[in-house]
Amino acid sequence: MLSEKVDQMMEWSSRRSVIRMNGDKFRRFVKAPPRNYSVIVMFTALQPQRQCSVCQANEEYQVLANSWRYSSAFSNKLFFTVVDYDEGADVFQQIRVFRPPNYSGTIALALLVSLVGGLLYLRRNNLEFIYNKTGWAMAALCVVFAMTSGQMWNHIRGPPYAHKNPQNGQVSYIHGSSQAQFVAESHIILLL
């Protein structure tokens, strides 16, 4: 059975560097023993309606798999595969992936640290601006105004910018309830 699995993987790999898998193939060739080879699996959602912003790594993954396939080190010990959500949704449930990872917060933090580090490096001979009370007061006020206006609530809850009444077409920028708000409402409060 092992030799049949390896032969099948080699046949698929000879046709395409990246082997497309569905749920049945994944369970048989990746999860089920016996297996004396390694499998690198990329989980993705390539269909445009999925709007997966982090799925752009597919082209780089193809380049990597092609490099391995046509290298002198190529053997039957390593295979590159891909599982698309539309072809193997059961695999995503099996490995408990319900949504793609979102690295925007990590990227924003890295960008902020880089900007602060760059500013300190450029101004290393004159760091008196760090002791400027007016600058710190303005920064603190900006944070207080942003939080008072409800920006954090918007970030957590993700409300719409405004609401358009379907009956009369009127746009509401301020929510009628005291338990909710629109993004436009927080912008109005911030400006006030």
Rank of each mutant, 00 (worst) to 15 (best):
residue 53 S to I: 09
residue 120 L to R: 10
residue 137 A to F: 07
residue 190 L to M: 13
residue 166 P to M: 06
residue 67 S to G: 07
residue 184 A to I: 08
residue 101 P to R: 03
residue 91 V to I: 06
residue 48 P to R: 02
residue 165 N to L: 02
residue 139 A to N: 11
residue 22 N to H: 01
residue 109 L to A: 14
residue 5 K to S: 04
residue 127 L to Y: 04
residue 18 V to N: 06
residue 143 V to M: 11
residue 165 N to M: 01
residue 40 I to H: 03
residue 14 S to P: 11
residue 101 P to C: 04
residue 124 R to Y: 08
residue 111 L to N: 08
residue 58 N to K: 08
residue 139 A to H: 11
residue 113 V to M: 13
residue 36 N to V: 10
residue 160 P to D: 07
residue 152 M to W: 11
residue 99 R to I: 03
residue 95 I to N: 08
residue 181 Q to P: 03
residue 106 T to R: 10
residue 37 Y to H: 03
residue 32 A to T: 10
residue 63 V to A: 02
residue 128 E to K: 11
residue 64 L to E: 09
residue 76 N to P: 00
residue 12 W to D: 14
residue 155 H to E: 11
residue 75 S to R: 01
residue 157 R to S: 07
residue 175 H to Y: 10
residue 156 I to G: 03
residue 117 G to N: 13
residue 177 S to F: 01
residue 66 N to P: 05
residue 44 T to D: 12
residue 154 N to P: 02
residue 153 W to P: 00
residue 147 M to R: 12
residue 141 L to M: 13
residue 40 I to P: 01
residue 136 W to V: 12
residue 169 G to Y: 02
residue 134 T to F: 12
residue 171 V to K: 07
residue 47 Q to V: 10
residue 56 Q to M: 05
residue 64 L to V: 09
residue 25 K to Q: 15
residue 112 L to P: 03
residue 133 K to G: 00
residue 147 M to E: 15
residue 186 S to I: 01
residue 142 C to H: 15
residue 33 P to K: 08
residue 181 Q to M: 11
residue 61 Y to W: 09
residue 153 W to V: 05
residue 65 A to Y: 00
residue 171 V to C: 04
residue 113 V to Q: 13
residue 189 I to R: 07
residue 49 Q to Y: 09
residue 156 I to V: 11
residue 135 G to W: 08
residue 28 R to Y: 10
residue 144 V to G: 06
residue 167 Q to I: 06
residue 96 R to C: 07
residue 50 R to S: 08
residue 49 Q to G: 05
residue 42 M to V: 07
residue 49 Q to A: 03
residue 74 F to M: 10
residue 27 R to F: 07
residue 13 S to F: 04
residue 20 R to F: 07
residue 110 A to N: 06
residue 124 R to G: 01
residue 153 W to A: 05
residue 128 E to T: 15
residue 183 V to A: 07
residue 145 F to A: 14
residue 1 M to Y: 12
residue 125 N to Q: 13
residue 17 S to T: 11
residue 146 A to I: 15
residue 92 F to P: 06
residue 190 L to I: 06
residue 137 A to P: 00
residue 67 S to P: 00
residue 17 S to N: 05
residue 171 V to W: 04
residue 25 K to V: 15
residue 69 R to H: 10
residue 90 D to V: 13
residue 4 E to T: 07
residue 141 L to K: 10
residue 124 R to I: 07
